[in-house]
Amino acid sequence: MANQNRVEVKSVNSFTDRYSPAQSISGNFLTTRQPAWSNNTFGHDTLNDPFRTGPLHLTNAYEFLDTAGEWYLNLGAGILHHIPRSRQNMNNVSVELPTPQSLVAVGGTYDAPAHDISFSGITFTGTSRLGPSGNQGYPLRQPGQTAIGIANAHTSGVGLGASGTTITRSEIAQNSEGGVVVGGVHADAHHSSDQRMVNRDITVSYNRVHDLGIEYRGIVSVLNTYGRQQSQSGQGSPPLPAPPLHPHHGVRQQAAEQLRPRRDAADDRRRVHLHVALEP
């Protein structure tokens, strides 16, 4: 198999999807990259210990193409391989290959915060998601990629501290993962050390939200976390992999040193090797 290090292990668990990229394949032994394997075997509903035993797939290899509608991007050759669907004429097809992971990132500084911003009547569509194919994998914590990030440090570099921001009567669609994320889950999000960090007066209303989580389905379409005077209303139309609205006040992320179990040599050997029978 060519390009073995682009193969990814995908596990569909009880309520998480997890991806762990391969480092190498030898016979029936697949060795995953680190820290992706450690990331995906830590927490709940993990790759090696799911709440419900679901499908386990190998993805992202040219050799796996066998069904109409499937595609593979050969990065080295710059070629997109695609098996056309029934009665599909590729001469008449418009093909988009998104590369940006986020379309809009709203974030200022605590001395000069972002405020009094409104998006209305705009279509936000076409994002990619490149992170899960890297060494970190896709451990599925909170949604990390989103079309629009407000006071979200994943995209802006400055988390929290937004106010007077509205997204209304717009369309958010055809994105690899999530739609809108407001805020975060670290300690300063729920117990701010500086009152300037508190998100205030954020409104997401009357938007058409559809076709999200196309590739990475463990998403929330519109997620707002801790803040004051935040509201969502009138979002969504199917298909969506999860309910479109999620006012979230849960998982408070503690310091990694408190949560992550200590590693030793035996533990490394257990986690690094995933044994998968490959069909010839």
Rank of each mutant, 00 (worst) to 15 (best):
M1D: 03
M1Q: 04
M1S: 10
N3E: 06
R6A: 05
V7Q: 09
E8N: 14
K10L: 11
S14F: 13
F15I: 10
T16F: 14
Y19Q: 05
Y19R: 09
F29T: 13
L30E: 03
T32Q: 12
R33I: 15
R33N: 13
A36D: 09
N39G: 03
H44P: 00
L47W: 02
P50Y: 05
R52V: 11
L56N: 04
H57E: 10
T59M: 08
F64Y: 10
L65K: 07
T67F: 02
Y72H: 10
A77L: 04
H82A: 00
I83N: 06
R85A: 01
M90A: 00
N92L: 03
N92E: 11
N92C: 01
Q101H: 09
S102H: 08
S102P: 12
G107V: 06
G107N: 02
D111T: 09
A114T: 14
D116I: 05
S118T: 11
S118P: 02
F119I: 03
I122D: 02
T123H: 08
T127D: 07
T127S: 14
S128N: 12
P132C: 15
P132Y: 05
G134S: 10
G137R: 01
Y138E: 13
L140F: 12
G144N: 10
A147G: 07
I150Q: 03
A151Q: 07
N152A: 14
H154L: 09
V158E: 05
G159V: 04
L160I: 01
G161N: 07
T165V: 13
T165R: 00
R169H: 15
I172R: 01
A173Q: 14
G178N: 09
V180W: 02
G183S: 10
V185Q: 13
H186Q: 06
A187C: 04
H190G: 06
H190S: 15
H191I: 10
S192A: 14
D194V: 05
R200P: 08
D201G: 07
D201C: 12
L212G: 00
I214S: 03
Y216W: 13
G218Y: 03
Q230Y: 02
Q232W: 01
Q235R: 08
P238D: 12
P238K: 07
P241R: 09
P243N: 10
H246V: 06
A255V: 00
A255G: 05
A256M: 15
E257F: 06
E257R: 08
L259R: 01
L259W: 14
R262V: 08
A265E: 09
R269V: 13
H273N: 14
L274R: 15
H275A: 07
A277Q: 07
E279M: 05
